[in-house]
Design a protein around this nucleic acid. Structure first.
Lengths: 155, 155
DNA sequence: GCCCTTTCTTGACTTTTTCTAAATTGGTCG
DNA sequence: CGACCAATTTAGAAAAAGTCAAGAAAGGGC
């Protein structure tokens, strides 16, 4: 594991804190995005924690700055969109005037806690939708989004 | 039908074009909103055509102005939200930075034509979703939105 | 018709996102 | 290694959508 990380990191600066960009770097390579400082830093925040995340440009930028990364908000927007286009992220629309990005790109749905403006994943396995009409001729379904809006205190 | 319309219209100005506000007026009365000129005009555009509509504040405002109604955009926003709160409209979020309002408030879902930014209703009867987890304790489902995003030319 | 309250309007303002032009960086080639 | 070119980043301006506030106007009960 450590060997692998070291190898992959290669000539890229890993910073004094070790080689924490390994996974992020792998992902960027995989989709053909040039691994710049900013993309590596954002990728690390998004993917290297292991757990799935739901961020907005604002929250991710804030988090990056808090962690000492020098990234502008515009770059965060660019990066989120590039990651989305590359399939590393999924954009979830729940709320007018705020875009959420989900690190979980597998097939799944969402709870949206309206009181807290928080998303929660619902694994799609087990969820079945039947009876939907077929898409009009010549068009193709790009995605089916199911959002369950929830009000009230959380358990 | 004509009698009824005349009766209901009562003392309210119906304009020289007849009594076209009848249905709109009824709806406002039903939900306890004071039937002002602006609300009547917008209600007419929304409800009196008979068919279901999907509008944004922008498009409705434009339409109202085109029809000679003197309404400000802020009033259109206010009215759309009041109508939504009263259950006359349903808000549909498909697209970041643009709120759609649907005159069809019955239980149904949507196609969203990504290329044209157009919504299309899907009748919910026949559509069944199974396997969804229950809402967390203490919270209440306020709505389940199913949006089928479609790419490509329309039939 | 009068008065009180609700509603409407205008215009400024906020928030989120995009754009632009200049500066910087990554990767390549010699 | 050093120069170079194209991709990327940046700051700040600008756009787009929606909200807010204060005064003006209009409903509706009397």
């Amino acid at each position: 594991m450590e060997d692998q990380a070291t190898k992959i990191t290669g000539g890229v600066a890993t910073g004094s804190s070790g080689r924490p960009y390994a996974q992020s770097l792998q992902r960027l390579r995989a989709v053909g995005l040039r691994p710049t400082r900013q993309r590596l830093a954002l990728g690390r925040l998004l993917f290297d924690t292991g757990c799935d995340r739901h961020v907005t440009a604002e929250t991710l930028h804030e988090e990056a700055v808090r962690h000492g990364a020098k990234v502008s908000l515009a770059t965060v927007y660019n990066t989120l969109h590039q990651f989305t286009d590359s399939g590393l992220l999924r954009e979830v629309v729940v709320d007018c005037g705020r875009a959420y990005f989900d690190t979980n790109v597998s097939d799944h749905h969402h709870f949206f806690h309206e009181d807290e403006n928080k998303l929660e994943d619902i694994c799609a396995s087990g969820v079945a939708v039947s009876g939907l009409p077929t898409a009009p001729e010549g068009s193709e379904v790009s995605r089916v989004d199911i959002i369950i809006r929830i009000k009230g205190k959380r358990a």
